[in-house]
Amino acid sequence: MEKFVTHTGRAVPLRRSNVDTDQIIPAVWLKQVSRTGFDKGLFSSWREDPDFVLNRPEYDGASVLVAGPDFGTGSSREHAVWALQQYGFRVVVAPRFGDIFRNNATKMGLLPVVLPARTVEAIQARAERDPSAEITVDLENREVRAGDVVAPFEIDDYTRWRLMEGLDDIGLTLRHADEITAFEERRPALLPTTV
């Protein structure tokens, strides 16, 4: 996956809570068997409304989505992450994320940043006042800088390192294949198999 060290871009304020993954990418898009083409499906139902924030020309090309609490709840569909990335987002900022979404995002190199609700609102208000204002999301220093707002965020060392190096999890795990084999030898024989 693409390395993520620091990113500067414009922000889109999405003032909604509980943006579930069914909204991010409606189910009809999940029938694809490839990993591409999901940008068209991003918020496809909400985008039918001409006033929806992503339809406003001033937010064209923005790359940081700033949303309300409980972003990415619901279905485990990783397609939600693919759709956001393929549309051009590199970061989602919210006060709280659905667990599975956040996990999927870090696997793909889309950075989920948790900030306090008031900070998120301040960043949204700034993006509404001045859609051309840039925001910097600095993973190396674990900090978001948006004008007057300078906010630290938490992310564990390991995930940060993996994102900064752009490392594939499977490759990392397979370095420990011997330990997996040893564990398998210890597993109780009475555990079921599917065959």
Binding site: R77, E78, V81, N103, N104, I170, L174
Partner: peptide
């Protein structure tokens, strides 16, 4: 789990 993790479990 998401699809990246499905692949991870299949492989490891």
């Amino acid at each position: 789990i998401g699809t990246s993790e499905v692949e991870h479990v299949l492989a490891t």
